[in-house]
């Protein structure tokens, strides 16, 4: 669920659009230096994957279901630069084509999901991986915690925006409690699913997991026989 038009006031939206644009510009630079001319096809297909996986429903209980947000998962799989770009493009297309997320709120949504979601997820993944022993199951544990942490942080980004320029009448502490509480629960789901998905990719093609070999990894082009 993305922020619609009119939920956060115009000056705040414009300011965050500026921050988001700067973050995306940095990600473009980073992606170009790590991926070179592969950026477009690989980030493009990652964006497609994120878009598709957000339609994949996970049943929770009593008929309710949730879906993956995918920030931390994408960062672990393809690296934070390409992941931020892919998520930004997903948000842009959702806003322009599906009216999901307001056009004037695009900067706010990009800030929360493409920047905070991806980078907090990736940073916590790297930090946790350092502490744990170097084996494959540590990758899954780190992926779980990265997913778990990234979601409430992205929600905290929203609370920050709300505190600066919210138009609703809920008090900031009410919003903080409600957002962090629900998103902590969502984060548990996100973490479990991210960990299971990363584990499954590790099992068959560990060479594709960017976070497994670290940023030194050279992305190999592999041709199917």
């Amino acid at each position: 669920m993305h922020i619609p038009d009119g939920f956060i006031d115009v000056p705040t939206s414009v300011a965050f659009a500026g921050i988001a644009a700067a973050g995306v510009a940095l990600s473009l630079k980073g992606a170009k230096s790590t991926l070179d001319e592969k950026t477009a096809p690989l980030a493009g297909l990652t964006a497609t994957f994120i878009f598709a996986v957000q339609m994949l429903n996970f049943p929770v209980a009593a008929g309710t279901s949730g879906h993956l947000l995918g920030g931390a998962l994408a960062a672990i799989l393809v690296g934070p630069w390409a992941a931020s770009l892919a998520l930004t493009v997903v948000l842009l297309m959702q806003g322009l084509l599906f009216a999901d997320g307001g056009l004037t709120a695009l900067g706010l949504n990009v800030f929360n999901m493409s920047l905070i979601g991806v980078w907090v997820g990736y940073a916590s993944f790297i930090a946790i991986k350092k502490i744990l022993p170097k084996n494959k199951s540590s990758i899954s544990i780190a992926a779980f915690l990265a997913g778990l942490i990234s979601v409430p942080f992205a929600a905290a980004g929203f609370v920050l925006q709300y505190a600066i320029g919210g138009t609703a009448t809920f008090s900031i502490s009410q919003v903080l409690t409600a957002m962090l509480g629900t998103h902590f629960l969502i984060g548990i789901g996100e973490g479990v699913i991210s960990a299971l998905a990363v584990g499954a990719v590790m099992a068959s093609r560990s060479d594709l997991v960017y976070g497994y070999k670290g940023s030194q990894q050279v992305l190999e082009t592999r041709v199917k026989e």
Binding site: P41, L45, F49, V53, P59, A61, L196, A200, L208
Partner: peptide, 30 residues
């Protein structure tokens, strides 16, 4: 899929989807 106990199956599908997407990206790039 009815509950949390089925997450592993769906997450594995997501992983398979990622691998297929990525490999397609590689083929497109080539």
């Amino acid at each position: 899929a009815t509950g949390v106990k089925h997450w592993k199956v769906i997450a594995t599908s997501a992983a398979a989807l990622f691998i297929r997407s990525y490999e397609r990206g590689e083929r497109v790039h080539l």
